[in-house]
Design a protein around this nucleic acid. Structure first.
Length: 235
DNA sequence: GTTGAGCGTT
């Protein structure tokens, strides 16, 4: 039974999802299955992995059949050392099937765990190593996930659209209608030629044309080299 | 081969 997360959600009718955080990047559903299944009936386990690299993200979703067992696993496995790392088990809330588990959430002391979650100083420090994908400057999985769930409240989409339409007439700050760029660097002097177009980087004659091989025709020979002695042989 | 707060797929 290790088909978790391979064929999508099997059946999520009355299952409770648990979010397992702080797990090692090598931990797989098979490793968590025997662990969570011991405390209850695990319906499915899913571990989001990176589609680009294929590595685990560091957290998994354990779906339980009953909230009782799920809660038990949370209290039992929460903080348990797995693979050398203390995992954190908690009920999923942003999931697609975020069950109203808050029913039995009378603990009233879970807010304390938020202490360490506030410690987010570094964001891209990890990207530095994974910089493999320089084109992926946009990470959807970033912790900047939208705003509070309440933010959606009262944010009528249609209303905004209407407002935008109106503002278009008044503001009409068309970005492309900008002034004809008076200060456009049109190059005061556009000399398409004569300007050291191809300066030889390592050519011995990088400097101006020498008075010697500049004009082998004899131009210099007549006006500059009247003395055969001073020609090139300076012995 | 690395990282470490968080919230999910056929």
């Amino acid at each position: 039974m290790s088909h978790f997360g391979r064929s999508g959600p099997p059946d999520i009718r009355d299952t409770y999802s648990l979010l397992v955080l702080n797990i090692t990047f090598r931990t797989t559903a098979d490793d968590l299955f025997p662990l969570f299944d011991k405390y209850g009936k695990v319906v499915d386990i899913f571990i989001p992995r990176d589609r680009r690299t294929g590595d685990s993200r560091g957290f998994a979703f354990v779906r339980y059949k009953y909230a009782d067992e799920a809660e038990k696993a949370v209290k039992k496995l929460d903080g348990r050392n797995v693979d050398g790392r203390d995992i954190m088990v908690q009920f999923a809330k942003y999931g697609p099937n975020a069950e109203p588990i808050s029913r039995d959430d009378h603990r009233g002391k879970d807010s304390r765990r938020r202490s360490r979650s506030r410690s987010r100083d570094r964001y891209y420090e990890r990207d530095r190593h994974r910089g493999r994908e320089r084109d992926y400057r946009h990470r959807s999985r970033s912790r900047s996930r939208s705003i509070s769930p309440d933010y959606d409240r009262g944010r009528g989409r249609g209303r905004d659209d209407d407002y935008r339409s109106r503002s278009r007439s008044v503001d009409s700050a068309s970005p492309r209608h900008r002034s004809p760029s008076p200060g456009r660097s049109l190059s005061p002097r556009r000399t398409p030629s004569s300007r050291e177009a191809s300066p030889d980087r390592r050519s011995p004659a990088k400097r101006s044309p020498p008075p010697k091989s500049a004009s082998p025709r004899g131009r210099q020979s007549v006006s500059r080299s009247p003395s055969p002695r001073n020609s090139d042989a300076d012995e």
